[in-house]
Write a protein that binds this DNA or RNA. Structure first.
Lengths: 153, 153
DNA sequence: TCACACTTAATTGTTCGCAATTGAACACGC
DNA sequence: GCGTGTTCAATTGCGAACAATTAAGTGTGA
């Protein structure tokens, strides 16, 4: 009966929950990134926004939100801080005045070069081969997308 | 040369970053948990604390922090909210008055039974076999621990 | 014993993250 | 054209998350 009792509790054990693994890994990543991003003057979510803009400039706020799974309640104040840091500019679209377009300033563009060092440092910290990381990334993304599909129902 | 340019940018592409995969998966989990935990009157971090206490009662705040990788700045207010919800009690240890011991109230204990439904729902939402999830969890935990090892240096 | 370092929680201030609401701009159907 | 519904950003309020500091309790060595 003790065996039965233990079995019944297994699903509730912290160490058995993939979700806690993901949650704590995200925080671990955050802590590794922190000193690297401090040199760029960015927080991690701000860094993500900059990654989006370095790929494509002049993006509507909404598109950034869709890529990062964030809403305007998060992005509006974050982007205002990036604007205060003179890394981005926020302008209302002329053809659709509901939209706010986010574009890089020259400083924002320039920061990309300093940022190139970041992924290298992370790779080193992960102590993992690139192929292993890519495989894991793909699995995690697949899981994330299945979860998001459930939410969308 | 275009080829070269693209290659140089690959490490900075959002979709190539395992860290964004983990970050966005954590948020996806959070969104799936939300409606389930709403029924228990818990947020996700509060749920994690309850998981710890359901495994072992009467735990020092510090130990909870070590298990969840959280510090007193996060846990103190969170535990005060759990206390206000009458799920836990906070008492100073008598043998070491620096420590605050966290223990479950009868309501806190009782909530465990309602919580058993949660992991099942998550499993269903992940649309994955248990063995696949366990394998992924182990990989992610291993990665997290390597990252944490780097931080500790 | 007493100064000093260490441990532990609590506090303060900043930034995320999201739900819910508001208000402005657009699209459409008639 | 004109009301209706939709889209989009901004705002408000609350709960994390963490850095940095404070304060109290404990342990140790001279």
């Amino acid at each position: 009966m003790v065996r039965k009792q233990l079995t019944g509790d297994q699903p509730l054990r912290l160490d058995n929950q993939i979700c806690f693994a993901v949650y704590s890994a995200a925080h671990a990543f955050n802590r590794v990134y922190k000193p690297l991003l401090d040199r760029l003057g960015l927080t991690y979510p701000q860094y993500l926004v900059m990654l989006v803009l370095w790929e494509r400039d002049d993006v509507p706020l909404k598109d950034i939100g869709e890529k990062l799974f964030l809403d305007s309640g998060t992005l509006t104040p974050l982007l205002k801080r990036l604007e205060a840091a003179q890394l981005v500019k926020r302008t209302r679209s002329t053809e659709d005045e509901r939209q706010v377009l986010i574009s890089l300033t020259p400083q924002g563009h320039a920061l990309k070069e300093k940022a190139r060092a970041v992924p290298q440092s992370i790779l080193a910290a992960s102590d993992c081969s690139v192929s292993e990381l890519v495989a894991m990334k793909n699995e995690i993304v697949a899981l994330r997308d299945r979860l998001n599909a459930v939410i969308g129902e």
